[in-house]
Amino acid sequence: MTHNLLLNLRAVIGRAYPRIVGQNRAPTWVFYDILLPLLAVTAFVFVYRALNAPPEFTGFVIIGGSMLAFWGNVLWGMGAELFWEKNDGTLELIMMVPCSRMAILVGMAAGGMFAASLRALVTIIVGVVLFNVRFDLSRLPMLLAVFVLTMIALYGLGMLFASLYLLWGREAWHINNLLMEPVNLTSGMYFPVRAFGQMLGLIFSLIPLTPGLDAMRQLLFPAQPMGLIPVRYEIAILAVLGMVFAVAASRALRYMENLAKTEGRLTVRWQ
């Protein structure tokens, strides 16, 4: 038991390590992966400026833009990761190691979250410094709880994607592309999700970003009451989603791995 726990913990650290260290070995990623993507987020700030929107809306964009870093990481760093490993010929090695596959995925999540957190942080700093965004931090503990629950649910979803992508070939790339803008829309990345109406907003709350972002905006900008439902309900939704995605990911990973093996597609590259 203890041996297994230690083994899996080492696997988590081992998988997270190259992601964190790799960033430091090529510091140019700060320019390509942090500063340049910020420009697209900034464009949405200017949209609200063109509309003479209240200053809180600039804050909405900044918070949405910072969460975009995590969504991009979930799709490309988690979902598509096993697909990349397959194409690079390293998936076989991952399948051979004597630890839980979930430990590998958790390690991927931890390492990826590091880079995404830096990007999110830079987005927020840019918002504060360049666009004079002011956050209300009076409910910081609750904000942190919402953030952590959002991350758990979001990366649980990423693990679920990773298992699905085991079977896919080139579709994985396209499905990832397909999921970017529609999720930006349905999660209300750049506008309050209440604009959809309550029914649609609740349906879209199956994506963890939607209740997570809405709750964070309610907590950070209480002067602009545009929340979908009270924060406590959104916390409950996030907790449930986190548990459901984690269990589903674990089962789906086992199922998809077996299916890929029986169909002979586990290591087929460039299909």
Binding site: V47, E181, L185, G188, Y190, P192, A195, F196
Partner: peptide, 11 residues
């Protein structure tokens, strides 16, 4: 649609 909703939420 993102831009549409950004507009209508204000207008």
């Amino acid at each position: 649609l993102i831009l549409f909703f950004m507009f209508v939420v204000l207008s």
